[in-house]
Simulated scan of single mutants.
Amino acid sequence: MSMIERLQPPRGLRVLITAGASGIGAAITRAFLETGAKVLICDIDPAALSAFAEAHPDVMTLKADVSDEKEVDALLDAAAQQLGGLDVLVNNAGIAGPTGAIDEIPLEEIRRTIDVDLMGQFLVLRRAAALLRESDAGVIINISSVAGRLGYALRTPYSAAKWGIVGLTASLAKEMGPDGIRVNAILPGVVRGPRIEGVIRDRAEASGVSYAAMEAQYLANISLRRMVEPEDVAGTALFLCSPAGANISGQAISVCGNVENI
């Protein structure tokens, strides 16, 4: 096998991507479809699912909230039936959560962030594990964040959940390694798109500065002085599923332009 071939995932992989209809999830979905993978995506937004499916007729879709155990059960049942098994799980679903001081954030917003961003990954993993063990080369990619390696003032629920994903990944890599399953986390930085625009707007308001000033502050904390594109994260996901990534497991891989502070 040539090095170019080693850098490409095998064709025909059976892939499940949560929150795969927009943002980073959509970029990852498009990337796997380009490799000839069979892809099932879920999303909480039916309109986004419909629009993505119209643009990409080969994708399979299902509306699901990953924080809802029954909906996750239905999602994994669909994966078993529609994909015929599972080779790759991309645990991408997450929400930005609230911005504010710890003693001012409503408790229900803290719980919702943890339920979606961290507990949602547990719910999917506990049902996906058996399917992945039946694969010849199972791969799990958990999407965390640069907030999973750095403290993040005024964003404590989100950061706590993303740190939890890194611990989950390292532990699960040890647990499932003997089954031949590789488990890694990708930690995106400041990814261009509507979500980070909302985060910057809310943090600017909480800090009493303009949007432009807060955006400049974010960029100044990145060594490369630029935002990450969703396709950068997608490319890393493909690499982790390729033969070239066959001995990478238990890692938290930042795709962030070297964020030094957030």
Score class of each variant (00 low, 15 high):
151 G>S: 14
202 D>T: 05
182 R>I: 01
234 A>T: 06
257 G>Y: 13
85 G>Q: 06
96 A>Q: 09
145 S>F: 09
219 L>K: 12
182 R>L: 06
142 N>K: 04
187 L>M: 12
15 V>C: 01
209 V>H: 10
96 A>Y: 04
79 A>L: 05
192 R>Q: 14
21 A>N: 06
146 V>Q: 10
159 S>N: 00
19 A>S: 12
187 L>T: 05
67 S>L: 00
220 A>D: 15
237 A>Y: 00
69 E>N: 05
173 A>Q: 03
60 M>E: 14
123 L>A: 12
80 A>S: 12
73 D>Q: 15
121 Q>T: 15
153 A>D: 13
256 C>F: 14
168 L>K: 01
188 P>L: 05
212 A>G: 09
122 F>H: 14
156 T>F: 11
107 L>W: 13
50 S>E: 15
227 M>H: 12
98 P>K: 07
215 E>D: 13
217 Q>A: 15
110 I>S: 04
189 G>Q: 10
178 P>E: 06
125 L>A: 11
75 L>S: 00
58 D>Y: 02
119 M>E: 11
208 G>N: 12
157 P>R: 04
32 F>E: 05
213 A>H: 12
224 L>D: 13
107 L>F: 15
206 A>Q: 10
42 C>M: 03
135 S>R: 02
111 R>A: 13
54 E>Q: 14
37 A>H: 02
188 P>H: 05
57 P>F: 03
262 I>R: 11
